[in-house]
């Protein structure tokens, strides 16, 4: 079947015609041009397609677009501020947490959500949080360091705002 639906992505309502069997990942990438989320497996195993769905990170390859009507969706594009980088993104660069970059959008999305709910995670908590995001390049060590650094920076900037 096909259907006209409204998808709320990064705060904007998008009216799109979709097929019942299209995943959210496919619609984000092919119909909305939001290609930061990647398909690494299409089966929920790698986390490359992670988006924030209804407030928590999920694999968009295992969500049907048709289910997503009326749900708030946030992608890496929506996390990236208009004219600079988010402190998590900058920390990923500064700490050498990026190699081929294919896992990076999913990693940052997952990190964003982690630090929202747990601004000061322990190393164990970080490892658990990103355990569904596979990275074949980095061996994760520098990613974990970047997440800790991002947590520090976010705390500092929050402190300043207060």
């Amino acid at each position: 079947m096909s259907k006209d639906i409204t998808l709320n992505v990064n705060g904007i309502d998008h009216h799109v015609n979709i097929q019942g069997n299209e995943t959210l990942l496919k619609v984000l990438r092919d119909k909305l041009g939001l290609t930061a989320a990647k398909e690494g497996c299409g089966a929920g195993e790698c986390g490359a397609c992670a988006v924030i769905y209804n407030g928590s990170p999920a694999s968009s390859c295992l969500i049907l677009a048709i289910e997503a009507e009326g749900v708030e969706i946030l992608t890496l594009e929506g996390i990236t501020p208009k004219d600079h980088l988010h402190p998590i993104q900058q920390a990923f660069i500064d700490k050498g947490a990026v190699q081929c970059g294919f896992c990076t959008p999913g990693m940052i999305v997952t990190t964003y959500s982690l630090l929202k709910s747990n601004p000061d995670p322990t190393e164990e908590e970080i490892k658990k949080a990103i355990s569904g995001n596979l990275c074949r390049c980095t061996g994760y060590v520098q990613i974990i360091e970047a997440i800790r650094e991002a947590a520090r920076r976010l705390k500092r900037s929050k402190g300043r705002r207060k």
Binding site: G47, A50, P57, A58, S59, I63, T110, S131, G132
Partner: peptide
């Protein structure tokens, strides 16, 4: 069970 991404769904 699975990963946090799985468990959220």
């Amino acid at each position: 069970l699975g990963s946090p991404l799985t468990r959220n769904r």
